[in-house]
């Protein structure tokens, strides 16, 4: 099992060499992408147990920052992506400081994050210099690798594959680190963890910063991949829900949960798209049913179910 991550990475790397279909590569790219932002949510929601219903906040900051810096200042999104991550970390520290200093937990924390994201959505909709309700079109420059633009979609596939591998490796390291154990302790019982000397405020804030930075880089990737972002795509509540669905279904607070969840939902989404061609949102309806079923039958996600059957991972 220790070799599994490398094996998966190798398989992922070989796929585009064997499969020429743009459809398959595109579908896998999105599956990796959702696993990546899901991993971002997973650090805060899964490991530290702080359910955010507003992670679109960080996603949107990432997508808008890299796109705006490119459009307004000509800065390559390779750098813009890290600027976005830095801003998202700042936003995470600010919202986290407010929420955790004032002791918001559970549903209250979920709601305040939703409200923060909504403020950004409304602001982005009303501010013309960030594109207003139309959003931002990233101008295309042909095949320009230095500007994060490629003539061939397979480049995006490899980029997100590497990003996902890095995030998965990072979370794996985090899980067995002191910080990871402290996060788990807070998730299971915050008062008890504090009684044992864990600085819950600091640990939660660290989780928030890591989570925000990761999610923001996913947002930048998205904006480059689709060359477009608007307030609803970036900051909207539906995006917040999309971000948390995969880790929840796959297993929150596990290394492989986001990836597993993303493959399951991605597969289902593609399957149903074939059934109902005329309509693009039907996958969300099915996700709703899956979410309800998962809460009742798989309260710890697919990973929880696998673990009960003795699978280690």
């Amino acid at each position: 099992m220790r070799r599994l991550p490398l094996l998966l990475l190798a398989v992922g790397a070989v796929i585009p060499l064997l499969v020429r279909s743009e459809y398959v590569i595109g579908t896998l790219t999105l599956i990796y992408f959702f696993a990546f932002v899901g991993q971002g949510w997973n650090i805060l929601g899964g490991y530290a147990g702080q359910f955010s219903f507003g992670h679109a906040l960080f996603f949107g900051i990432g997508a808008y920052t890299s796109s705006l810096l490119f459009v307004k200042a000509g800065l390559t999104p390779w750098v813009g992506m890290w600027c976005g991550a830095a801003l998202a970390v700042l936003a995470g520290l600010l919202t986290g400081h407010l929420s955790f200093r004032f002791g918001l937990r559970g549903a209250y924390f979920a709601l305040i994050m939703l409200a923060f994201a909504e403020i950004f959505r409304v602001a982005a909709t009303n501010l013309d210099w960030v594109g207003g309700s139309f959003g931002i079109l990233v101008p295309l420059r042909g095949h320009a690798p230095a500007l994060f633009q490629f003539g061939d979609k397979r480049y995006f596939y490899y980029i997100i594959l590497l990003m996902l591998a890095g995030a998965t490796y990072g979370v794996r390291r985090l899980e067995s680190s002191k910080l990871g154990y402290q996060m788990a302790a807070i998730r299971e019982n915050e008062s008890a963890a504090e009684g044992l000397g864990v600085n819950a405020y600091r640990v939660k804030l660290t989780a928030m910063a890591l989570s925000a930075g990761l999610t923001a880089r996913g947002g930048s990737f998205y904006a480059q991949y689709f060359s477009y972002v608007d307030p609803a795509i970036g900051f909207g509540p539906t995006n917040s829900i999309e971000i948390l669905l995969r880790p929840i279904i796959g297993g929150a607070g596990t290394v492989w949960g986001p990836l597993l969840g993303s493959f399951l939902l991605g597969g289902l989404g593609e399957g149903t798209r074939g059934l109902v061609k005329s309509y693009a949102g039907v996958h969300l309806m099915i996700y709703g049913v899956i979410l309800m079923a998962a809460v009742v039958f798989l309260p710890h996600g697919v990973m929880g179910w696998l673990r009960r059957r003795g699978v280690r991972g």
Partner: peptide, 8 residues
């Protein structure tokens, strides 16, 4: 989940 289902 219920909201997602009903809305879509």
């Amino acid at each position: 989940g219920l909201a997602l289902f009903l809305e879509n």
